[in-house]
Amino acid sequence: MKDTIDAILKKHIPKEKGNLIPVLQSVQKKEGYISPESVKRISNYFRISRSSIYGIATFYSQFRFNPPGRHSIKICLGTACHVQGGDFILKALQAEIGISPGETTDDMRFDLDRVACLGCCALAPVVMIDNKIHSRMSVIKLKELLNKYE
């Protein structure tokens, strides 16, 4: 892990604060989340306190601070998806896999998140699983779909 973070930091010269968010994004891309260890290293590099880094990172919904599951489920709750029943899908899914948004299942199979809008409003409601967007979802379709992900 030390090496990956070092490699990322080396790519972001100069040590300007403007590079902080891109660094956090790259770290999350590589490691799946922002760990306390990586915050420590980023803090040393930019000479910004750890609390400031957390202050900035927690402001943005993109960053997560616990390890993700093998598959990431994102339920879109944009206006169009809400009107077409996205909320019902979230509710049913929560009951089905037993976790709330922001959490990961105990077997690390899935993590669950809500997202403000994926921009596929014309095909609402949509659900994103591992970067693939599935359109015109229903509780039943999602249930069948999840069986394909181990």
Partner: peptide
């Protein structure tokens, strides 16, 4: 930063 939920013109 097309943030309005329900809008995707820019995308």
């Amino acid at each position: 930063d097309e943030g309005d939920p329900g809008a995707f013109m820019n995308r």
